[in-house]
Design a binder for these strands. Structure first.
Lengths: 233, 233
DNA sequence: CCAAAAGTGTTCGAATTACACCCATGA
DNA sequence: TCATGGGTGTAATTCGAACACTTTTGG
């Protein structure tokens, strides 16, 4: 049974916008790939590829990301779909963008070299191919909205982190300073962090206490109508 | 020059989720179509169709909506893209959903009959084909979030409306009562409504003052960092 | 002992909530 | 005149913003 005959078919791609947070540099970084095929071969792009016959969009995004970067089991979430006629000069391609937040240490140290993947600060991005600049801008705006209302910040930090690091992350995203006392008051009042018996001693003599995000406690609160709101200053 | 050869091509559809507000019934309604082709011919669906070779996704959505309902110049905004393998039993189809808010009087009175389009309350929707139920649920959730932070409510009301009607709309969306005095205080304090010299006299002896949304004033405020927030009770 | 970063409370104004009665009118 | 729906204000509380000093410790 052949249905829908006569309807035009399209090339469909997925593009993965991967953000990570660099604790040392206090910068959000974006994963970029040197494009290996024409057109625009050698130019910077996000990790993308075509959707195959026998895979869902979500599966395609995971596969493409794994192939280009080695990153596996990422929590990719669909962002937006781009379908202007001439967005890709090589052919008419419809592209579905996905984004993910990762802990930078999840990328094995040599993977970057191995896969021609590079991390670049979102503050100094190079020119990207096609409409990838727009895709990134859209995803970033979405991330900035999300982080106010969902505890997505913890996806970008290691298991153990200090309150100073968490605050630095918010400042990196908002690009403005945040009041330390108000920030701590607010996040601690949510009761979703556990203070550990261990200090981070690299960056100060005094040392800063490590904390841990308690996902289970957050989920219980959520079920009871708790509303995460870290809209600071 | 044939690039990207060997990559699989896909059927791509757009589906339009059109919401309207029925002032008299105080209900949000959804535009449904009796499907005219196999599979699932005669079943309820939202307005959809395939994307052609020479049109953008946005253009396809407008065209499809116009053809099926007569609705023209709608402000459609892209919601989400659905790409599971078996979502459409007829073939592998990737579908991009769009949604729009319209004033119910924008639909010419006989258009419904003419085009086999029907308005159904979102509270008692029939079974929809494929994953259209999910699409609608997703769009509705999005609308509920939006209406808190953007003055989208005015898209659903006629040019002139009363504060009671506006409040009824919010209650229809939230499905819970809203405090009358606090609601009025908040919306009037925003200074984006103009009281007209005219009363709505159909529903009460006293009559309720008509108001008008002043889009220009809203836009000026927005530019100055004003933040619409009608998160009530 | 001192430099450097971590940690800690209070006050003030604004915003949000809860709540009940009077008003205007047509029938 | 009365039934119906429209319109109004205030007090109590909570929330958000601003703000500066003390603590710890390795060198």
């Amino acid at each position: 049974m052949k249905l829908y005959k006569g309807s035009h078919k399209h090339l469909v791609a997925v593009d993965c916008i991967i953000f990570a947070y660099d604790i040392a540099e206090k910068e959000i970084k974006l994963l970029l790939i040197k494009r290996s095929i024409e057109p625009a071969k050698g130019k910077w792009s996000v990790a993308g590829g075509f959707v195959q016959d026998d895979e869902s969009l979500d599966a395609a995004a995971s596969r493409v990301l794994k192939r280009l970067t080695g990153l596996d089991h990422m929590h990719l979430s669909q962002s937006s779909t781009y379908g202007s006629l001439n967005r890709d000069p090589g052919a008419r391609v419809i592209s579905v963008s996905y984004s993910a937040l990762i802990k930078i240490q999840d990328l094995s140290p040599d993977a970057a070299g191995l896969y021609h993947a590079h991390w670049r600060s979102i503050l100094k991005l190079p020119e990207l191919i096609f409409d990838h600049g727009t895709m990134v801008a859209d995803a970033l705006e979405n991330l900035r909205e999300q982080i106010k209302r969902k505890p997505v910040g913890f996806e970008l930090l290691p298991e153990k982190f200090t309150l100073v690091q968490l605050q630095d992350l918010y400042e990196a995203l908002y690009q403005r300073p945040v009041d330390k006392r108000n920030f701590r008051k607010k996040i601690l009042a949510m009761n979703i962090l556990e203070k550990l018996d261990e200090k981070e001693k690299e960056t100060s003599r005094k040392g800063a206490w490590y904390y841990r995000f308690i996902r289970e406690r957050y989920q219980v609160l959520t079920r009871n109508g708790f509303y995460f709101n870290l809209d600071v200053n």
